[in-house]
Write a protein that binds this DNA or RNA. Sequence first.
DNA 1: CCGGATTGATACCGTGGCGGTATGAGTGAT
DNA 2: ATCACTCATACCGCCACGGTATCAATCCGG
Lengths: 285, 285
Amino acid sequence: MSDLETRQLRYFVAVAEERHFGRAAERLGMAQPPLSRAIRELERQLGVQLLVRTTRQVALTEAGETLLADARVALDAVAAAQRRARRAGQPTRSLRLALKADYDAGLLPRILDAYDVMPVELQLGGRGEQVPALLDGRADVALLPAPFDESGLDTETLLSGPTVVALAAADPLAARTTLTLADLRGRKLPDGTDASEGRMAAGVRKFDLSQIFNLVEVSGVVWFLPEWVARRFPRPNTAFRPIEGLDPVALKVVWPAESRSLEVAAFVRVAREIAQTPEVALAGG
Amino acid sequence: MSDLETRQLRYFVAVAEERHFGRAAERLGMAQPPLSRAIRELERQLGVQLLVRTTRQVALTEAGETLLADARVALDAVAAAQRRARRAGQPTRSLRLALKADYDAGLLPRILDAYDVMPVELQLGGRGEQVPALLDGRADVALLPAPFDESGLDTETLLSGPTVVALAAADPLAARTTLTLADLRGRKLPDGTDASEGRMAAGVRKFDLSQIFNLVEVSGVVWFLPEWVARRFPRPNTAFRPIEGLDPVALKVVWPAESRSLEVAAFVRVAREIAQTPEVALAGG
DNA sequence: CCGGATTGATACCGTGGCGGTATGAGTGAT
DNA sequence: ATCACTCATACCGCCACGGTATCAATCCGG
């Protein structure tokens, strides 16, 4: 009957993620007994068993899995409300734009130049950091390469292009104009996985693009990236070749689904217009 | 610093909606002083002024407006988590489908027949009740005529058609094949507003379609509805005429944006297939 | 088969947060 | 100027939440 409190959801998420009351309690900065009691009380309120405990392991029931997913969404929504309210009270307002360095397809300078509603604060981060930031209110809008999990978000595609592989110009494969994933069997990504698996190796956040291109040129590893990124970084000793059979990669502008912010809407409009306007040669000489 | 509790959000929403501490306290079933104190504490936690109080009126600051919108979303998310967890623990599962009576375009029987994942529980309600039910977890999926506020929801269009006006067959306008809004000047909707405004008069929830057609035939009022609804209810004394210049009305299947429910996904797939399959004549004879 | 380690549950206690009542203070209306 | 209205303050009492100590069940090594 009585309503859930975010405290109860935070406790449950901690236990469900740790699958261990002691570690969850430590993470929450509290002792284990009151945490156990709080979860019991939560189950009693819901009239549903969420966890199956033995003294050796904690497992989630189906209801627990359901609640875990929904609780994360709800906690993000609460955190977003808190953050946005804090910001809305500040005298100096800005738009927080989350993006991955080098993945703006050259649109960013023109967008920033054209967007004059308020100052734009850039939040550079690795892949995977932008979406959570949008969901919990740390960012207002993002520029991201698709695909990514779009639940809870609205998006608009700015441009789209094929995936290319970056390989050393001296590589025999560079002599061919197009490649398939199978051709890459044996080639490694910087993280050591085989390139023929076609994943865009995550977890290589320590490197920026020029460092990766250095690796490509000197150590024979390869690297996948969207064509609209590669085009911005021509290097004489790195060859970019399209991969057949991979889905195209879109650059999207992304914002929280429930956003009714005029500032975000204006940003999306500007981004759309810039993306549709070809980049003119600035100086004819 | 410390996290927001749903209790604080519920209190704030009550005060922000009532714009009156006393009434809000009454609505919350508590006394006014602790409510005032809780709002003060909330403002202190956020470091932001949410309300401008005088002894005569309570007004929202810009931060307050922001928080009101976000808090509603967050509270819906918490309520949805609670309801879905409760249901997930029940042994008998069902899919709760919210819709407006008579607005299924004839698809419903075939959809229900084809959907065999789990029992479907129908929630008939007036326009405007389905979307909140989806957002706070009282319903899993809905069939709705667009347009409606889609924030926080995902949708897929099943079919689309023009808006028509229902008028008495004896009405002089019924002699014409198409009409414009201007032609309807002077004609009234059942709620008394002028038909030439083009709104689909809300607030006439007490009547079902046959009652409305009765009104149309005997009292000279007119009524707007989608063509794909009108087609299902042929009546000799009611004429349906398309209105030029009005946007088409789509029938959409709608579900919570964050839903990753396989049951909902299966329902959407079935609905899509049914909508693309023309209704065959059941008996040729 | 037994003893120790691990881990969640129980018992009990103290405090702080939350809500209640009584009352004050500011403002608009007559 | 007085009254009505409404939000704020003061003060009080309770219980909900968290802490400590301990128990109980299970797994594992010997």
